[in-house]
Amino acid sequence: MDPLLELLHQNSKLSSAELGKLLNLSAAQVEAKIASYEEAGVILAYQAVIDAERTDPDAVTAYIEVRITPERGGGFDRLAERIARFDEVKSCWLMSGGYDLAIIVEGNHLREIARFVSDKLSTVEGVISTATRFRLKTYKQNGVLLTPPVAIDRLPVTP
């Protein structure tokens, strides 16, 4: 991966000037590269990684396995894209193995997710079955550990 993308992936708040200094590029060069990545759809969005257990302790996240019927010509794409459009669906992947789609659904409480599954998801034409599992606790999200490692006391000056 382009080191610029790696850096942005770790911390998208770095300024163009800082990124330039890290990569031996000018700020203008960095901005041009970022613009081209955005235009090409390589960079899709810039988001903060938030510990939702602190901001919304009652919020519920479900991991739902969905079996769907593939269609002639389009395979799974049309149905998957249709399901992915729901605001409640935060992520949606086509999987290998015993089911077809894995989706992550977020809601304010259990009933909200139950309603989404029964009213929306299961009723989509082509959905064969769903299996819903609720998240109990998050340990790591987007590569970030939720309990940061204990700061290690290093000697302030060593040879």
Binding site: R154, L155, P156, V157, T158
Partner: peptide, 14 residues
């Protein structure tokens, strides 16, 4: 250095 707090150390060799 050891007697001070809030020092940013660039003096570490590890």
């Amino acid at each position: 250095v050891q007697t001070m707090t809030d020092v940013i150390s660039l003096g570490i060799g590890e």
